[in-house]
Write a protein that binds this DNA or RNA. Sequence first.
DNA 1: AATGGGGTCAACCGCGGTCCA
DNA 2: CTGGACCGCGGTTGACCCCAT
Length: 255
Amino acid sequence: MVMAPCFDKNGRKKGAWSEEEDNKLRAYIERNGHYNWRELPKLAGLSRCGKSCRLRWKNYLCPDVKRGNYSKEEEDTIVSLHNKLGNKWSKIAEKLPGRSDNEIKNHWHAHLKTRAQKDQRILMSKYEEIESLQTDKTNPRVSPAKNINVKSKENIVTQVPTKSSSQLSSISATSSSSLSGSHYATSTHVSPQSSCYIPEGDFWTEPFVVDNNSIYSSDISSSPLGLVNDFIFQTSCQEMFLNDTLSLSSLDSYL
DNA sequence: AATGGGGTCAACCGCGGTCCA
DNA sequence: CTGGACCGCGGTTGACCCCAT
């Protein structure tokens, strides 16, 4: 779990912390605070570098640090914030009292990244499903929503906060209701700010407004009810884009 | 029982930002 | 303005754990 203790060229200890070291560091900081990490190890009687002390305190010894499993709410918050902020672990940690940036980062890589990638794949298959319906020329018709202006892919991707590769997994599962306050209380959420994988000529490149080819099943589309459904589907998806709450389950409910 | 491989997580490293002389 | 010291952040490493074979 931890590196075996060793010493650097300056004779400072590296690797796992002993209980004695922990006690020294804790006692010193509780007594004097940590105004200067560089001086601290010397004053506390530790053969460590200041950085190492800082990390040990921040991630482990600080009384505010919460140990133990992550709640569903915490995980949802991490995923959602990661969608918005990217790998800004310290910013994410600010929103999760008791969790350190390092701990959140580890938890992301160990658990949440996989979950996010899985949900991304599901979401993309839904997009493709819509797209295939959209491009079905066998049932051309005019959409009642044709004049509505919708966010394009260009608008979306320009808001990407970082170029980190880990952001490829930015479509992910979370409770959108917990953060966005949206009435689309869902289990899965995609942010328009995310830099998710986008296939060429995809869903994102086309506005939800469709001129003559719309998103319908053939049996409904020929009826007045079909027209109403088209309008509801398109305007609702649009609203979800604009409100940053497009989700798998909301898509499901419309399909 | 032995072992190998993936998962987990504490800790280190390097870089960039800020501050100050 | 510049350069050095310091701090904080994000990426990465590596040792231990655990489970499957």
